[in-house]
Design a protein around this nucleic acid. Sequence first.
DNA 1: GATGAAACGGAGCAATA
DNA 2: TATTGCTCCGTTTCATC
Lengths: 163, 163
Amino acid sequence: MPKERRSPGPAPRPAPGGLDEVDRKLVQLLTADGRMANNALAEATGIAPSTCLTRVRSLRERGVIRGFHADVDLGALGQPLQALIAIRIGAHSRDEIDRFRAKVPRLPGVLSLFHVSGANDYLLHVSAATPDALREFVLDHLTADPAVSHAETSLIFEHIRGS
Amino acid sequence: MPKERRSPGPAPRPAPGGLDEVDRKLVQLLTADGRMANNALAEATGIAPSTCLTRVRSLRERGVIRGFHADVDLGALGQPLQALIAIRIGAHSRDEIDRFRAKVPRLPGVLSLFHVSGANDYLLHVSAATPDALREFVLDHLTADPAVSHAETSLIFEHIRGS
DNA sequence: GATGAAACGGAGCAATA
DNA sequence: TATTGCTCCGTTTCATC
C-alpha cells in the first residue's frame, strides 16, 4: 500500500518551532504514554522504526522533550495532602531572592514553584503527609525565611490534569 | 557477597501505603527517569530483574504509578506563554459546577485544574501561544461561562519542578 | 533525511529451588 | 523471591537510496 497521502490543499503547515507534523504527533503520543515502544510510535506516525528512533532522539537533543517521568499517586506514597501556597517576597536584595528561589524547589514535598505576576510573587505546590506536617513546612521553611513577607496556604481538594 | 544488610536499629519501616523500601525506591527512580530499563532498575534496587518486573507491574496495577509521560518544552511547541488563573464560582446549581469542572480540563492549552480552598474556588494552569490567545481563552471560556463569577490571570514568569 | 535488513540486547515467561 | 534458560520482540546500527 502506498504511503498515506496528504489531501490536496494548503502547503504543509509552517510548523511552529521547526517541528513538522510527524514530530508533533510523536510529542503528543509520548506525552500521553511516555513508555510507548519505538515500534508502535513508528507505526502510529507512519514512519520506519529507525527513522522514528532518529526523530525521537532529535526531539530530546533539541530539548523539545525534556525527559520522561512516572506519574505517581502521592496518596499511595503516604502524602495524601496537597496545597498551593501563595508567597509574597519582602523588599530584599537580589541575592536573598535568588537564595530563596534556589532553596525552595529542593525542600521535601515540593512539587512545583511558580514565579508569577500579580499580587503574589510565587505560588508553591506541595504535598504533605498530614495537616500538621503541612503547617510545620510552612512555618519552618516559609514563614521563617527572611525573604518571605507573607504566605497563604490553600488546600487542594482535587487536582485534574488537562487534555 | 551477602545481601546488603540494614544497619541494626528500629524495625524495617512501617511502609506507608503498603510499600516497602524497594517499592519506594522503584517509584523514586521511575519518577526521575520513566524510561529506565528494567535491568537497570533491578540493579539499582538490588533485586532480580524478574522480581523487578513483577514489582513494577504491581505498582501500576495498584495505581501507585498512574502512567508515564514525556515532559515537553511547551515553548518549542509554539506555546511559550503560561498563566495561572484564579477562578471564583458564583452561587449556582451543583449541575452547573459539575459541567464547568468537566468542561475546563478539555479546553485547549489547559495543563491542570486545581480545586482549592480559600477565597478562590479553582486555579487553572494554562499555556498559550500569544498574549492575545490567552486573553481570548479567558474571555471565551471563563468570563463567558455562567458558572464563573470572577477570573484573575497571573502570568507565569518561571516554572520550576520540585526535587 | 528516510529506509530495510541484520546484529544485538532486553523483556517476559516458565520451571526450579 | 532468586535463579536459570529460553524465546520473542524491540532497539540500534549501518549501508543504501
